[in-house]
Design a protein around this nucleic acid. Structure first.
Lengths: 239, 239
DNA sequence: CCTCGTCTTGCGCGAACCCGCATCTTTGAT
DNA sequence: ATCAAAGATGCGGGTTCGCGCAAGACGAGG
């Protein structure tokens, strides 16, 4: 059994290496990559089926890397090991995991024990292991309680990228009015509205405010934006 | 000599502890805090004058913590130890460092050597030590080359928060038109403009787009937004 | 003192945005 | 098949935005 570690922080990489070695004595080879790109190529050349991957890396983030890896080999087992449980990450991950693939999501703040347990569960038992905290975010994200549907999320991303209503309509194949309706729902769910009375006391640009709130709530984050921007550029080309 | 370490990642904290001990044998006490709040109180109770601080922590970020610490004791020496050199961080730090205070900014990717050297330079020689890469960002930020003046930056933050032109005008004590002029400069510098012809091909909401670009360029990031939001709430109260 | 460049402010207009009201389609459950 | 809830689209109008045009304000230099 070979295990590939993709993590840009040297300290964490070393720690992971150590953890893997002790938790999985049956593993006869540990490979390390220090960014997403290297991770992809190493996964390809070594045909690794077992990967521990950091999200948020400078060169190419974990989600991107995981996506291409899974695209080539959907049966790969990936354990995501991240600092945060931002809804943006959680959503990003669950959007790309192939049907039936085993994956895990544990936080860096987890104990030694938990990490090692997760390693065994995933790579030996082929079981999904999602950190309790992450699970919470996931639940909230999918359930209706302050949860955002995929279509709402798309619209959110679009306004965050700076598209106009009309452009969004074209991109998502909707009428102008429909887009605006969705925006309305968004504003609702984000609790973004004109404070105070109609007076000119404090005005808010709902569309911009919504983006700000989404960021503050970690519904969006840098990597989500980066990803969305890439998709946007692609869309701009072929149309 | 006592040294306070403020860092939320256990691994990095241990590493720092080790580095401090070996680089500064004259240091007879090392204290650790695992978030900004704890850092502040420990700094207060221990009267620490030498601090190593992480930026981006969950509970209370390093810039906030440093600000209150410096407010109470401007002669404190602080070494910032961060993963990134986002312009938002660099600007944030240099905005709060008191006149004549010694501080440092080294990246986590720096070598062991460099870290230890920085530790000695700052805490023994009382010298500022800014990582080369950070220096570059700083330069670019202050110089005119694609640099943003403080006033422009303020406006940028305001639109990112979702304020309307009128509200910004009130907040910054400017006329409506002046705000719009500044926005124009911003759009210029961020190279945000309507692509293509006037046709309904692809429309862009300049104000939202500007924010997106600023994020992608790391002119803004989560902690900058968080900070700005706090200031905004404060302003909303007393007016 | 005059002049030039930068900054501020006002006016005005076309485009985009926010949104209530009122029709159709879907979609799903009975 | 039927009925209801959810979603899509049109219409219309009140606001805000993006921005060209032009008239003061102010410091630097001749």
């Amino acid at each position: 059994m070979k295990i590939l570690i993709v993590e840009d922080d040297a300290l964490h990489r070393a720690y992971l290496h150590e953890a893997v070695s002790t938790a999985l004595p049956e593993c006869e080879m540990v490979i390390e990559a220090e960014d997403g790109n290297a991770g992809e190529t190493l996964a390809r050349t070594h045909g690794s089926a077992h990967i521990v991957m950091d999200l948020q890396m400078n060169m190419r983030n974990g989600i991107e890397a995981a996506r291409t890896i899974w695209k080539e080999r959907p049966e790969t087992c990936i354990l995501f090991w991240s600092n945060y449980s931002d809804e943006a990450y959680v959503r990003g991950v669950s959007r790309i995991v192939p049907d039936g693939a085993a994956y895990g999501y544990v936080l860096k703040s987890a104990s030694d024990e938990r990490l090692k347990l997760a390693l065994r569960s995933i790579f030996i038992e082929n079981q999904c292991v999602i950190d309790r905290e992450v699970r919470g975010v996931q639940q909230k994200s999918l359930g209706q309680v302050s949860g955002f549907s995929d279509t709402e999320y798309e619209i959110l991303v679009d306004i965050a990228l700076g598209l106009t209503d009309r452009t969004i309509a074209k991109r998502r194949n909707l009428s102008l009015r429909s887009v605006q309706n969705r925006l309305q729902q968004l504003y609702d769910k984000l609790e973004v509205y004109q404070t105070g009375t109609i007076g000119q006391d404090d005005g808010i640009n709902l569309r911009a405010r919504a983006v700000a709130v989404a960021f503050l709530r970690k519904l969006l984050n840098y990597s989500a934006l980066e990803r969305a921007e890439a998709e946007l550029q692609e869309w701009l080309k072929r149309d």
